[in-house]
């Protein structure tokens, strides 16, 4: 029931947003919201903490940007190319990382993501510290001009809804149920005959792919793929968004991304204090607010 109301709210807010908010800012939030949802699929439902999701987000942004700028791909194909790159990368990372468990899994993903970061820094096509600039938005399906911020906005909102839908479908499928079983008790899931590693790998690949979709879309929105997207701090930020909104809840990551994104935006004039404040929120969330906004809301509403 609550989820239906929240979905309706999200749909109405999303459709009307460009009329009362700055569209580019909302598009930025939507990309991060999709990114957080993809991340939540992995941590919230499969119990796997990846500290390297920035590699998929940032990596896909570079590939999408480059394929559009240098090869003249149309925007949709470019975004799909970036997303495909994230899929392949996700398979490679996942294959390696699921060989270790728990805390090691987090460290392995972080270290693997650092390879992508250094590659983005050193390879000639990425523009190094300056990033990949001047990516043309182009025309969607050959006739919708994406330079208009309104049509760009609805394109991004559409991508967000598709990504969000895929994640919901995954969570509520038998596959998603098995993931949650693995999260709760891996040994038991294994003894019930589930090939745990394959489930984990598939969850990792789906999550990485959708994180890539978000990153590739962001590159087209800003016409820019930057090194920041691939930095470990972005991986940390997406964890924070998911945590603030509510781990393992359907709408938590969306709410978290809006909250943290809006907060960072409001505080952007305070320089490094933003980091201090985000760090403090992180600490508070871990210590006393582990359910997150949606998690707490659900708990309050369930009480008679």
């Amino acid at each position: 029931m609550m989820n239906r109301i929240l979905f309706a709210v999200m749909l109405v807010a999303g459709l009307t947003a460009p009329f009362y908010a700055y569209p580019v800012f909302v598009m930025d939030l939507l990309c991060f919201a999709l990114f957080a949802c993809a991340f939540n699929l992995l941590l919230g439902y499969a119990g796997l903490l990846s500290f390297g999701h920035a590699a998929f987000f940032g990596g896909a942004a570079y590939i999408a940007g480059y394929s559009i700028k240098a090869w003249g791909f149309p925007p949709l194909i470019g975004i799909l190319t970036g997303t495909g790159f994230a899929l392949i990368l996700g398979f490679a990372f996942g294959y390696l990382a699921i060989r270790r468990q728990g805390i090691y899994f987090a460290m392995v993903t972080l270290a693997l993501a650092q390879i992508i970061y250094f590659m983005a820094l050193q390879m000639p096509f990425t523009g190094g510290e300056n990033g990949l600039q001047g990516i043309p938005r182009g025309q969607l399906l050959g006739f919708i001009d994406l330079d208009s911020s309104l049509s760009m906005y609805y394109f991004v909102f559409g991508i967000f809804l598709v990504g969000f839908g895929i994640i919901q479908r995954t969570i509520h499928s038998p596959f998603g149920e098995v993931l949650q079983a693995i999260r709760e008790n891996e040994a038991r899931a294994l003894s019930l005959g589930y090939d745990v590693d394959r489930f984990k790998l598939l969850a990792f690949v789906i999550s990485a792919t959708l994180a890539g979709l978000a990153g590739a879309t962001k590159a087209v929105v800003f016409q820019f793929a930057s090194l920041t997207n691939a930095h470990w701090q972005t991986s940390g930020e997406i964890i924070l968004m998911t945590l603030v909104g509510g781990l393992g809840t359907v709408f938590g990551p969306v709410v978290g991304a809006l909250t943290v994104g809006a907060l960072s935006h409001e505080l952007s004039s305070y320089g490094s204090w933003v980091q201090v404040i985000l760090g403090t929120i992180f600490v508070i969330c871990v210590l006393v607010f582990r359910r997150g906004i949606i998690g707490e809301l659900a708990r309050v509403m369930k009480k008679p």
């Binding site: 980091q275 201090v276 760090g279 600490v283 871990v286």
Partner: peptide, 23 residues
């Protein structure tokens, strides 16, 4: 709790310390 919360907490502390000195 799950051990990942320790990692997340210390990650938050890292951000705080790093941000403080960067100021």
């Amino acid at each position: 709790l799950d051990h990942i919360y320790g990692l997340l907490l210390t990650f938050g502390i890292t951000l705080i310390l790093q941000g403080l000195f960067a100021n």
